[in-house]
């Protein structure tokens, strides 16, 4: 069966026949796959693994860094790669991540997340598009994805501090 990243490679080969496009497959097919694209002096990369979004990154990659931009499907990733190649553009790591990007990064649809939260898909859609979100809703959504919401406070020149849950008691005995 053709994986999404192999499908993407085929699409890009048709669109950019002179480009060098290689798919670096893992020994264990459940591991991370990489697509390396080079056209003259321009290059970019795409990564994918089963259950995860297609990650597009263009520009210098630091050691052990994750993907910059995530796409749910081949169509979205292909459109973005074509745009980047034509513009010889770069991507940037997200300075902040949206809730929808978090969800896609975990390989979940809105419906799947809604099922975990015992709400309707429309409620997840509203949550993801709201400007101001209740902390309890955000905590529940992140927990449903398998994560933990953490709040940190940073003052200039000081190390950041983890803020205890609002309204909760101190857990470290400090006052």
């Amino acid at each position: 069966m053709t994986t999404p990243i192999e499908h993407l490679a085929s699409r890009l080969s048709e669109r950019f026949p002179s480009a060098a496009i290689t798919v670096d497959a893992p020994h264990d097919s459940a591991g991370p796959w990489f697509l390396d694209f080079a056209d003259g002096d321009y290059s970019l990369g795409v990564q994918w693994r089963s259950g995860r979004a297609l990650g597009v990154s263009a520009g210098r990659a630091e050691f052990g860094a994750g993907a910059h931009e995530l796409f749910d499907d081949v169509e979205g990733a292909a459109a973005r790669v074509i745009e980047l190649v034509l513009a010889r553009g770069g991507t940037r790591p997200p300075t902040a991540v949206r809730l929808s990007e978090l969800r896609r990064g975990r390989g979940l649809t809105q419906t799947e997340l809604a099922d975990r939260l015992h709400v309707k898909q429309a409620a997840v859609s509203r949550l993801e598009n709201r400007d101001d979100v209740r902390l309890s809703s955000l905590t529940a959504a992140v927990a449903a994805m398998g994560g933990e919401l953490q709040l940190r406070v940073k003052f200039p020149g000081e190390a950041s501090l983890r803020l205890s849950p609002l309204g909760g008691s101190d857990t470290d005995g400090s006052r």
């Binding site: 893992p26 264990d28 459940a30 591991g31 991370p32 990564q47 693994r49 995860r52 979004a53 990650g55 990154s57 630091e62 050691f63 052990g64 860094a65 994750g66 993907a67 910059h68 995530l70 790591p93 997200p94 991540v97 990007e101 990064g105 975990r106």
Partner: peptide, 13 residues
């Protein structure tokens, strides 16, 4: 899966 600013070692898989 997305770049969070941290460097991670190679995964076994």
């Amino acid at each position: 899966w997305q770049d969070d600013g941290r460097m991670y070692p190679p995964r076994p898989d």
